[in-house]
Design a binder for these strands. Structure first.
Lengths: 211, 211, 211, 211
DNA sequence: GTCTAATCGAGACGGTACGTCTCGTCTTCAC
DNA sequence: GTGAAGACGAGACGTACCGTCTCGATTAGAC
């Protein structure tokens, strides 16, 4: 995707503007048509670009959409709202807001579905979309521990396990609420959800495998 | 007194065997090819049926796959394992086992993705797949209340809200764990998850919006 | 095509009205749709008849159309206009009038085209449509001979050869004028044609194989 | 800075070889299958070409077959055999030889039948197949006039009328003999036919409408 | 100031699946 | 046993995209 000219290269360099135009056209097409009716020829036309140009940069529809959707999640960050509960509510609301946008709804679930049979695609999704958000969980735990809201981490092995569990619960619940139940993940719902999650995490001993 | 023509039907009746063959062929194709490479012509051939026969019964790939996948969830039931926690663990493990099957993985997320742009399809998914499982939540709560594990329901309005929340959390977490994180929802994970969920629900006052 | 009920038969007899309705519906469909867009299902519907009924009587589209078109030619007859030339002009004009009707244009040439690869069909066309008209040629020659316009036939073998030639020339010219040149075979053209034909036949020694 | 490509053409040019391969495959399919069983998908396969390539060049079966058959008639020419009668016999025999080929028999009548309901198709047939042969009639008349076998043309208006009549008679008779009567237009028949035609034309005053 | 090579647009190419249509047969119930 | 209704297996239709491949026409860095 990069347009560097690595000194030894000759010939006309790739247009940097084309990349941006293609990704924007992809999101626009996702909004108007949805994943299944999006075609690469149409995206190329919208971007004012030839199909050749598009295929030179992305190997197919899946990869293109992952990149187009990933940019939407770059804006996610952990707000400092003074308490762990408020921080969680804030980030969950941001996540819900992104999932409310049609280009995210339509594209994200589709590429996840495709990824069930394509390991390389799943890795790309994880690297571009999922893992960056996991950092938010870690960051939130660290901040809460600084505030004294959480005890210091006893077992370093349990950290990863707990982070994964939290992440699956947060992302899963918001996605299910938004896309399957088709109800808004609004402030009231987020407050209910956060209360259950937080009480569960603090009340339960965090993760000893012996039960 | 056999009135054999229900609702004034005439002509050759539709073959009941064809429906079953088509749904089975659809699941087989999902396993072998996955959603995106599944074609209705191929499904018809596998089922030993003409394309017209298939199109006479289903309007498209989405509807067909919803029905094919829905049958997989018919086997879900709430086991009586003696305690609320054990009951939940049991049903979550069943749910995870279904999601571990390739015909469910491949098809379910794809139709959910399609449903983001097709309200009728979302309704069909809800009616065929989601809502029947919500009954399991209600049944589990009733059984726990009989055992004295849960207090009697105070606010009838809050019931629906809580059930919906529980359902989004359970289904969402398992789906995300299985399909996005691509890690097995095994007994250990289910135990961790159930502990957090159950402590969260009992520790938190269930649902007053004035929290 | 016959609807007899030969006394020893049991069960419901075939409807005689159905045959007529089907042939009429066929001609109507030829007018509205033409040969290539005519479908047997549509004909059955127009005739108020089930497809089964139609297939029980005709083996296919070709045979049906031959019968439907053949009825149009039943009205052809040799008028007695007082001279051979006038008689020929009269019958040619009748033939041209039939070919001007869309159900004949559309159907006749199509079945002839089909007959190039189907000997049974060609025989059926000849028996139903062509041969009856050949009798008109024979009848015309006999009448002219009675009037003294033609000499008595010298060579009985040559009769058939000459009749065939006349028939090919008359039918061929009218068909080509009407369907290929797409010009009307009107009185003026018929007069020109008849003059050439008649002068040619009388001036030329009729058919000695030795040249 | 304008595009210098002739007629504004850009992009990959169409393959000239594909056209030839498609027309040859069409004739081959006409021989093996006949008009009604010829399918465009099969023609494309025979030609080693995708269906899209075929549809990009021809709008349907009719147009394709007209072009495929038209090439068969390109070989027609007026031989110089020394006399008008011999010239006519020669060209009629050539015409009959073409119509004896199964790819012509099968295709020609079918497109003529289709043309009864499609003016554009009829024009195409006329332009591609019929009109070029009319020149042969004109050429033959001119040559005969040079030889002194025909008087100089008196009425220029009558020329067209006579040429049209001759053409309808020649083409019609040969087509009818070959395709409807299904008898060979061999040398004997051609001699008989030519004698009648030529005597008719010379004996009858050519075309005054006051006859 | 050429030369050179990868880029660009456009669009034709061989494929594959689509969803529809018609075929001719078969199966049911009503008469 | 015939008739209307309509489901059935089969297969062609013409369209839409796929991802690849030529084209001529830009570009910008290398010479």
């Amino acid at each position: 995707m990069q347009s560097r000219t690595p000194a030894g290269r000759t010939g006309r360099p790739r247009s940097a503007a084309a990349d941006a135009a293609i990704l924007a056209a992809t999101r626009q097409a996702l909004v108007e048509l949805g994943w299944s009716k999006l075609t690469l020829g149409d995206v190329a036309t919208r971007a004012g670009v030839a199909k050749t140009t598009l295929y030179r940069r992305w190997s197919g529809k899946n990869e293109l959409v992952v990149d187009a959707v990933a940019e939407l999640f770059d804006e996610l960050e952990l707000p400092d709202r003074g308490s762990l509960a408020a921080d969680i509510e804030g980030v969950v609301l941001q996540f819900a807001a992104i999932l409310a946008r049609p280009e995210a709804r339509s594209g994200l679930m589709a590429v996840v579905a495709e990824a069930t049979r394509d390991d390389a695609l799943r890795d790309r999704i994880r690297a571009s979309i999922v893992d960056p958000q996991k950092d938010l969980v870690l960051e939130g735990r660290a901040r809460a521990r600084t505030r004294g809201e959480l005890p210091p981490e006893p077992d370093p092995l349990a950290v990863s396990r707990t982070v994964d569990l939290i992440f699956d619960m947060v992302a899963g619940a918001v996605v299910h609420r938004t896309l399957v139940s088709a109800e808004p993940a609004d402030e009231e719902w987020v407050r209910d959800f956060t209360r259950v999650l937080l009480h569960g995490l603090t009340a339960a001993a965090p993760g000893p495998s012996g039960g």
